[in-house]
Structures are given as structure tokens and as C-alpha cells.
Design a protein around this nucleic acid. Structure first.
Lengths: 225, 225
DNA sequence: AATTGAATCTCGCCC
DNA sequence: GGGCGAGGTTCAATT
């Protein structure tokens, strides 16, 4: 896509007809035309949501002072009547490498590593991402009695996670230097059937409150993550 | 707010820490800084949603090549590291007069209340927002035989709406003063699986054309839409 | 101010 | 590709 992103600041009025009908009176606004033909109409304020927009796939027809953007799939139309162009520039941005979300799970693991007592009285951290032949265990701890505890951390606790932890425990308990290794299944929410399965296998379930956990961990120095 | 909207095209990397952690690798992007201090990071593609953003109230600290945007309420932070500025301009847009919407569910309900015969021959309105213990029924009507009919109105008819109406009907039919109560599921478009579910439960489906409906309803006095 | 529910939702997952 | 569920949901209307 060569055209790149075009930024137009213009006094304009906008009419949308599609799922609903909407109208924007004549006023100065930013028109963002993306390479894929989509268009956003932004005002100076409000949130991240544009006043009006058209999602791809769509085509732009520039006819004198009237731009018509038509969604080629739904037929939705955006009619923009330009009164005065205040700015017009085009910028080649290329394809964005995209957002990497260090979702809640990674951050949860981090917080629990910083304060393992949320998992059990007297718990201490051995290490994060404890390596095994079938993949790393999220957290390896010791309980108050010095017994090893493997911890699986999930945002939402489901059957899959219990199975995963079970495999780790089976493997870890074959190691005479580590055995016995207990298991803790930790998540913000644990589904009933996952809890039943876990407890049936002698795995303890711990639900943690993310915000509460954040509160307990020291925030005096910036973490940067 | 004098500063207006500032548009910066720059090679930048972005780090967000707040409810979650997220990272955008170094790449050219559009940074939209609005007068209220909020900021949007857009790529050339995707939907109307920015790659990353900060909602007001927030403050921007421009420190050489690193911009730090902090939400003054939640403490969420956006760190933008600028590698190269490709464009930088500011535009005074003023306060936007705002969007006027038409054709929402409420208006559809209004039109059907004004002319219930679109729902069935001889239908008459009992009342809008008919109260029940689990919430109001959109429209309560009587059919040509005087039988009560509960009507659920949606813009788009999906499974959820059928379930909702089913719950109402179950409740209403326990009331000996009302029972039997029939059901009509009314929408501009009804998804096939919703239609199947509804009809399987004895709920009649009616699709209505918004514009046609507007035409049948008296327009001698202005409706403001 | 808190709550509720729709949204031109968007986005990702899993089937 | 459709359904389901969550989102830094956002947004508006209502209590």
C-alpha cells in the first residue's frame, strides 16, 4: 500500500448511513485516511473513538468538495462535505509491527514472584520460569516446611491449566532431588470444573485479586517492566 | 484550551503500564495529541481503535526524546520514546458541535408504539416499557383477538434477544391475569440461528424496515430526527 | 456519582 | 467463517 496515511484538517460536515444514520454539522476536524481506504473523523477532544469512521474494506471517491466513502461489504456510506482545507499531508508509515500485550498472566506471575506469600503462608520463591524438559513451570517456590511447590499461573483457571500443571508435577516428582513437589493452581478466577479436577489431584487452588496484589507489592521505585 | 490538536508523525516505541503492560516496537506512527492532554497512537491500518492511547485526565511530560503521559486518576502511564520526528503540526479546531444519531433501538420502539400494526394485523398498544420483576418488556400489545403479546425490539435480532424475551414470557405467563401471553421478536434483521431458536419456542419473528416504518407513521409534526 | 446496557463496538480465541 | 467472551472496553442515559 503506497498511498500511506493522509492527514487532512478541514472544515467539513459528515453524514453516515449504515447500521444507523448520523450527522456531524460543519466544523473543523481531522480526517485520517489510512492506506487501506478506511477513514476516521476526529475532533479535538473526546476519547480514542472517532466522531465518525468507516472500517475497511471501503473505497473513497473524491468528487470536488464531497468525499464519499463506501464500505464494499456492507454498503455503509460516509459522505464528507469539505468546506475548507486547513492542512493536507501524506506520510509513509509502513506496516506496523503490532502491539505486544504482556497480558495479565505475565504481570500476575511477576507480582506473585515479588510476593509469594499470596500463594501460601511462609512461601518463598525459588525461581520464575523453572525449566523442565516439557517447558518452564511458571513459579517454583518452597513452602514454610521447605517443601517444593510448583505453581501454574493463569488469568482464568480452566481445565487445560490443571492438565498442564499435572504434567509438570508428574515429571518433577520423578526427580529425587526435588520430590516431593506439591502443586498450586493460581488464577484470578477458577472455573468450577477446573477446581474440582485440581483438588481431586491434590492440587491446591488459589484465586488472587490482581489489584489487591498490586497494592501489596512495593511501588516506590519504578518497575518499567 | 488553546494548544489545539497536535499531529506528530514519528518513529517511536511505546510502553504502556496500567491495567496491563503493553509494548510497541520502534516504528513510524501517528501521534495525535488532543487539547485535553489525551493522546492516541495510530498506525496506518487497523480499525478506529488506536494501537495505544491515554484517556483524559492526563498530563504529558516532554523530556527530550521521551514523552511520558500519566493519567492523573488511575496512574496509568504511557512512555513514548521518539527516535525521529517526520512531521509536527498543530491545528486549532475548537469545540465540536457533536454527533447527532438516528435510527437506534429506542426510535424503532417509538415508531412501533405509534403503529403496532407493523407487528401484526389488528395489534394495539397496551404500553411501552411494560414493567416486570426482571425488567421492562419493550412493548406490550394485544392482538386482534385481545390476547396479550410481549414484544422485544432489537436493531439486530440475535440469540441474546430471544433468550431475553423467553425469560419475560415465562414470567408473564405465570400471571393468571395476563396469561396466555404470546411473544413477538422484532428487529431490522434477524440472524438465522436466532430465528430458528425463536420459532422453536413459539415466538413469532417480524423484520421491520426502518425507513418504511418512518413512512407509515404520521410526520405532520416535526419529530426532531 | 454510581450503575446499567448498548455499541457502526473491536479483538481474539476456539470450534 | 461463525459463535463466544472479554476489553486499559467506550459511551450515553438513568438512578
Amino acid at each position: 500500500m503506497l498511498p500511506g496515511m493522509r492527514l487532512v484538517v478541514a472544515r467539513c460536515s459528515v453524514d453516515y448511513t449504515g447500521r444507523l444514520s448520523a450527522h456531524l454539522p460543519m466544523a473543523p476536524r481531522l480526517l485520517m485516511l489510512k492506506a487501506d481506504g478506511s477513514i476516521l473523523v476526529h475532533a479535538d477532544g473526546g476519547s480514542y473513538k472517532p466522531l465518525n469512521w468507516m472500517t475497511p474494506p471501503c473505497t473513497l471517491k473524491e468528487d470536488d468538495a464531497v468525499w464519499t466513502v463506501t464500505n464494499t461489504k456492507s454498503g455503509d456510506q460516509l459522505r464528507i462535505t469539505i468546506d475548507e482545507v486547513l492542512h493536507d499531508s501524506t506520510h509513509e508509515l509502513g506496516v506496523d509491527p503490532g502491539l505486544r500485550k504482556d497480558g495479565v498472566e505475565a504481570h500476575l506471575q511477576e507480582l506473585l514472584a515479588a510476593d509469594p506469600t499470596a500463594l501460601g503462608e511462609g512461601y518463598t520463591l525459588v525461581r520464575r520460569e523453572f525449566p523442565t524438559a516439557i517447558g518452564p513451570v511458571d513459579l517454583m517456590c518452597r513452602n514454610a516446611d521447605g517443601v517444593s511447590v510448583a505453581i501454574e499461573v493463569k488469568r482464568r483457571g480452566e481445565i487445560d491449566g490443571v492438565e498442564q500443571l499435572t504434567r509438570y508435577l508428574e515429571l518433577l516428582n520423578r526427580d529425587p532431588l526435588l520430590a516431593p513437589v506439591q502443586g498450586v493452581f493460581c488464577a484470578q478466577q477458577i472455573k468450577p470444573q477446573a477446581r474440582v479436577l485440581a483438588e481431586d489431584r491434590g492440587i491446591r487452588c488459589v484465586t488472587v485479586d490482581y489489584d489487591a496484589l498490586r497494592g501489596t507489592v512495593d511501588h516506590t521505585q519504578p518497575t518499567l517492566f
